[in-house]
């Protein structure tokens, strides 16, 4: 009994001395700022900055003193803290949010064929350019929702990706994962968007989608600064998004939406109190 205690005690002592010596002798110089930066970063390791996780980003900033690369999930507040740690002036960048430029779920947009393959939009897109007749609309298999590090994307029962603007950090992972570039990054303060991504002519769009942009130019005529129509598709000029409101109610297919008043139908995010347009083309 006593022998065992002494034995273990000696082994413990010897190990402690060795470890203590090794810790001093082989210590790696770490820039204290690196750890400080790592502490203020969100720690989600989303990779949106372009580095392998938050620690990679912290090391890069500590070594290069370059804070032009931003941390999209952390936004301006985190980058301000990082700038303070580095003793640099913060670079102000506008926060962004991802938007799904489509409302054509399975109730509104017609299918080209019945897709039976793996549950991945990128795989479906390779088969005859996707299972929907629309060449630009949301395929609805949820690749973006699975890839989002912040659980900010939900799939409606009718098969449409909807982004929770409160959770989205604008990291852009969904944008890169969408095979049809239906998701885009837009300024966070712009709440009005043309939710369509089909560049087909109006007559063609009407054949397969009751809620798509037909390029009728009414929005552009209502507020010329706020909308441009290119390739039969209207989009908001985000520099002038504050002027975009009057055209929302004039859009004949209801594809211009104001997120300040409501999300697309079928989404759990849609505030129940806000009446939505019928969604049916006139």
């Amino acid at each position: 009994m006593l022998a065992a205690i002494i034995c273990l005690g000696l082994i413990g002592l010897a190990s402690a001395i060795t470890l203590g010596f090794a810790a001093r002798r082989f210590a790696v110089e770490v820039d204290p700022r690196e750890q400080a930066i790592l502490d203020v970063l969100p720690g989600v390791n989303c990779g949106a900055c372009g580095f392998a996780g938050c620690s990679g980003f912290a090391r890069e900033i500590a070594e290069s003193s370059d804070i032009t690369t931003s941390c999209p999930p952390g936004g301006a507040t985190v980058m301000e803290k990082v700038a303070n740690i580095m003793g640099l002036a913060p670079i102000v960048s506008d926060p962004q949010v991802a938007v799904v430029l489509c409302q054509g779920d399975n109730d509104h947009a017609k299918a080209k064929y019945r897709y039976l393959g793996i549950n991945d939009c990128r795989a479906a897109q390779k088969l005859a350019d996707g299972p929907k007749l629309c060449p630009g609309g949301c395929i609805g298999l949820g690749t973006c929702a699975r890839i989002c590090p912040f659980n900010a994307i939900e799939m409606t029962p009718a098969g449409l990706a909807v982004i929770n603007r409160a959770r989205c950090t604008g990291c852009g992972k969904c944008v890169a994962s969408c095979p049809r570039r239906t998701i885009r990054l837009t300024p966070l303060d712009a709440s009005i968007h043309v939710l369509c991504n089909s560049s087909d002519k109006g007559g063609v769009v009407r054949k397969y989608c009751s809620i798509g942009c037909i390029g009728c130019l009414i929005c552009h005529k209502t507020t010329p600064e706020a909308y441009v129509v290119e390739n039969n598709l209207a989009r908001v000029v985000y520099d002038h998004h504050l002027e975009a409101l009057p055209a929302v109610s004039k859009c004949p297919t209801h594809c211009i939406r104001d997120f300040a008043t409501g999300y697309p139908q079928g989404s759990a995010l849609a505030p129940a109190t806000v009446p939505l347009h019928s969604g049916k083309a006139a």
């Binding site: 393959g117 793996i118 991945d120 990128r122 795989a123 390779k126």
Partner: peptide, 13 residues
Amino acid sequence: IPLVQGLRQAKGA
């Protein structure tokens, strides 16, 4: 399980 479909997806990527 759609195995070959997954492989094809990986090859494409």
